[in-house]
Design a protein around this nucleic acid. Structure first.
Lengths: 196, 196, 196, 196
DNA sequence: AATGAATGAGCCTTCATTCAT
DNA sequence: AATGAATGAAGGCTCATTCAT
């Protein structure tokens, strides 16, 4: 009995299972069998819907990046001034759901994957670029262009640094502390121009 | 070709080969065979001197952390004021030799390894703790204690963030830009107290 | 070539191949590859169906012990008096099929395996216990209880001794001679009580 | 500083270490390294004195068989009548020192080794033949020749059976019970002829 | 659509053995 | 005499992938 339209359902289940499995094992050494089992299907079917393990990992990566982007957009919808928009971006990137251990572990593996996969590298590049340009666009209303770019780079580094620390230190700054650190940095950059 | 006292020589060669191989392949998926071959010996010998793959990876990790610490100490020797000492620490952590692609790639794999190896986790913890306390000790001469701690956390996150970006973006901020970003952050924190 | 329900078929083939291979090489140093090849499949599949080498060896052991038990039961079905039942047990244990060189070689390796495998030890223990209690139950109709136990121990030792000799001496007593030796021992024990 | 006459000392140490190591690990899977270490020397030296692992195992086997033979001879020295001599042989074979766990484990491995080594097979053959003819010679003074041979075979099987049970059952009949079982068998055989 | 049977390459590890010193 | 450095073959096991059903 051929079921139709299973493709998106199966793919979704596999992507979720991939993230969950990476989160649980804490490494890229997840097997297709483990993922498929968690998703409630055979390993053969996983290949059928994704064509290979790398494709599955990339799909999981895309899902996480897409979620992040959605969060950014949602946050931006309620922001009106450039400053509010910068705050919205920071908070989206440090959103609670990104601190989900599964997601944090997945990020780490994406970095590793990017070392050997052009597509993974491209995806991470897109993420970094998007964060950077989002920040610059809004900061340039508040700061000189070079200063805006400088600040965007600093914010990006801080966000990634906080993130990576969460991947391994269980007593790393929590979400609220993290936001405070980053916003404080932003405030200082903004106050710098005003002081001069 | 001396036949006695080879142990330290072989271990050194293997550690170097491990870092080089991780750097070249960009992943933890380096085989003992590859490493041994690069070090100019058989895989059996690698096991003989290290007892296993994990031990080799941990030894490589220790080597990198030790190098970093040495650099910090060397830099501190020429620093006299607390401010100079903080600068020395930052610069040691962002030293050119840490930007060696092999070293950067190794760092990344260490993060991954730490997810599953208690010893790797411990080593990273020691690194983070040492950086933090080094910074706090010196910053507390310049700032109120809570502010010093806050700043140390921010600096640590920034350093790690810059580092991680280097592991994947070949057009990430270079060494000089990186130092500038971090020192600027430090300056702002220091100026904050003076402005009040 | 059916593609479903292969598990019992494959397992059976592997167990048979294990016994045959042990019989042919005469040691526990049979490789999974050899066994799998003899069973007409890849080594990977052997692991798939058994999970590991030890499991395969244990399964072969169980098979031999089960066969022995079946033989005992079959023989007992045609026995009516206690004496007939004791004879039936002896003959089952010295049955021709147990003198199959493969089976004899396997026994030997089981003894070795039992030195390091709790499960193998348990299986041999069950075998020895079953033989003993089977003998005691029936002998106690013919002899005083302590005498029955003593005789059961003697019979057990003799049976095992004959067996082990077969594992290495090709001119050890053959099946008929063996049965005669054991039955003679039994007769003497039984006549002892009558003479008194 | 070349030491002379080390050969017998080293060989003795290695043989003892071999038996001890087999006894401790309970299997033939002892490595030359383990044995050499236990004997207080390098693995290279072990090879130098024995030429290979198999030679070492065979030497250990010879040592145990020689010990057994010495014990038989010693016991026979105090025996005068044929019956005493048969008793002496039985007791030598079931001597306490043969029940040393190390020795028992070694025996088992010798059986296994005999499956693949012509020399090991020969040694075991010599042992069995010697035991058999020793018994027959003395029994033939007490029984008809065929009956003596029959009894010798039965005694041999019993002795080996008791032995093998000790290799795996820790609650097997102890030394005294074992002697009793075997002597009882002997008594019955002897009484058989008298009764007729 | 879905299964799981099947393969085979590859990895880590162990070990007997050789050899330079 | 003695060491332990060094090799290389082999084994158990895993796993992505393919394929017949």
């Amino acid at each position: 009995m051929p079921k139709v339209g299973m493709k998106p359902i199966r793919r979704k289940a596999l992507i979720d299972a991939t993230i969950a499995e990476i989160g649980q094992t804490g490494s890229l050494d997840v097997t297709v069998g483990q993922i498929a089992k968690r998703a409630g299907m055979s390993s053969g079917l996983a290949h059928h819907y994704f064509g290979g393990k790398e494709q599955m990992l990339l799909a999981a990566m895309r899902q996480i990046l897409t979620n992040l982007q959605l969060r950014v957009r949602t946050n931006l919808r309620h922001a009106e001034t450039p400053l509010q928009r910068v705050h919205a971006i920071i908070e989206a990137n440090l959103d609670a759901c990104n601190f989900d251990p599964d997601v944090v572990a997945s990020w780490l593996t994406f970095y590793v994957q990017a070392q050997n996969s052009a597509e993974a590298q491209r995806l991470l590049h897109v993420y970094a670029r998007r964060l950077y340009s989002n920040l610059v666009v809004n900061l340039s209303h508040l700061l000189e262009q070079p200063h805006a770019e400088h600040t965007a780079r600093g914010l990006g580094a801080m966000i990634d640094g906080i993130y990576i620390r969460h991947a391994l230190e269980h007593n790393a700054p929590n979400r609220d502390q993290s936001v405070e650190i980053v916003r404080d940095y932003l405030d200082l950059q903004l106050s710098k121009i005003r002081d001069q």
